[in-house]
Structure formats: C-alpha cells, structure tokens
Design a protein around this nucleic acid. Sequence first.
DNA 1: GCACCCGTGAAGATCCTGTGAACAGCAGGC
DNA 2: GCCTGCTGTTCACAGGATCTTCACGGGTGC
Lengths: 97, 97
Amino acid sequence: MGRLEIRPEEHAALVDGRPLSLTVRELQLLISLSQHPQRIMTREELFAEVWGGQPRDDDRSVDVYVSRLRAKLGEALPGRSLIHTHNGIGYRFSPDG
Amino acid sequence: MGRLEIRPEEHAALVDGRPLSLTVRELQLLISLSQHPQRIMTREELFAEVWGGQPRDDDRSVDVYVSRLRAKLGEALPGRSLIHTHNGIGYRFSPDG
DNA sequence: GCACCCGTGAAGATCCTGTGAACAGCAGGC
DNA sequence: GCCTGCTGTTCACAGGATCTTCACGGGTGC
C-alpha cells in the first residue's frame, strides 16, 4: 500500500499498481530524482538530465516541475513528502517520505 | 553509529547516512573546519574560506555560525562536542568529539 | 573587579522557493 | 482551415528560509 514504483522502460510511474498520469517532463524529472535516492541534486544536474544542456541563470523550470510533481504525488500518496527542498542547492528524493 | 560524514561535492553532511539539514553557510563552515582536523583555525582563516575576503574588525559571523552548527550537530550527535573554542584565537575541529 | 572575549536570541534585510496564470506550440477531430 | 485540449515555457507575486548584524549576558584570564 502507498507504494510507488517507477518503470522508466515503460514510461510509467505506478502507485499501488495504478499508473499516475504524468506528462513526459514530469516523468523524466521523477525518474532523474528517483535514480539518485537520498542524494541532493542541484538544479543544474536535474536540468541537464531532463532538459539537456544547462539552464539560463534565472531558469525556474525545475522548480515548476517539482511543484507539479509534488501535486500529483501528493494526490496519489497523501501525507508523504518524497521530494525535499535543500535551500540554495536543489532537491532530494527520499523514497520513504 | 554516531558517525559523521562530510561530502563537499554532494553538498551534504551525513550522520549515520542521514543528511543533516544545514544551510549553505553552515555546510561551508563545517567543511572548512573539518578539512583541517585538530588544527586551530583563526576567525580570519575561517571567514576567508567561507565568506571570502576578510572580516570587519568587529565581525561575529563566524561565532554565530559556529553556534548554529554546534546546535545542529549536537542534535544529531548528542554528547559529542566536535568544535572546540580556543579563546582569543579561533576554533578547532576534532572528529572524535 | 576589570577588561576582554564568546554564546546566542532576535530583528530586519535579503535571497530563494512555491505556485497560479498567461502564452505558445502541437496534435487530433471535424 | 478552424477549434479544442494538452503540454511546455516563462513570468510575477507572495510567502518562506537564510544571512547579517546587533545587543545582552555569561565566561575567562589577569
């Protein structure tokens, strides 16, 4: 119960077997984050993995997509916060909330 | 158990594998201190490494951040005092409490 | 006791993040 | 072609977190 499963090869993320309806970018971001659990990833790293290249100085894409991801994950897994903010650095994915 | 690990490249300080939630400055200071274990570092040295440049004559930033660091380390590692004050000089980091 | 030094709470300034909204591009259906 | 719905990108503002500085009280050494 309350279990998140990510299957990059199938372009799918499942919660209790039911697929989340994520957009391509959202899924890419979730995959990137989840492939480095407990590791703090900078915006630059995430941007490079999801968008490719490096972000503009004032780019907020990563933040916007983290926000959207959290919204969808929060709906499917209420009470758990999987993505943690590290102020001034980036984000960290923690499988166990 | 009770083991502190510092990974500058990952912007992280871990206690028993779990990341401490340090701010950027706190982490920088901890890194600076820990990179010279058992060595007494003056406020000027620490300030130069963390803030860059040299402090005003009456600057207390280093003290304030040492205090905050101690508070967070003390929470994660009760009973151990890793940062020692050397009166009139500065601070010293001692990995083994 | 005195002079100096240090620990630390608090306040304001500053910086960073969360997120709604606007807009553009694209694909499909008619 | 035109409309519709979805996605991606960017902007803007509000709220939150951090940084800096001050100020007071306690500590230290003479």
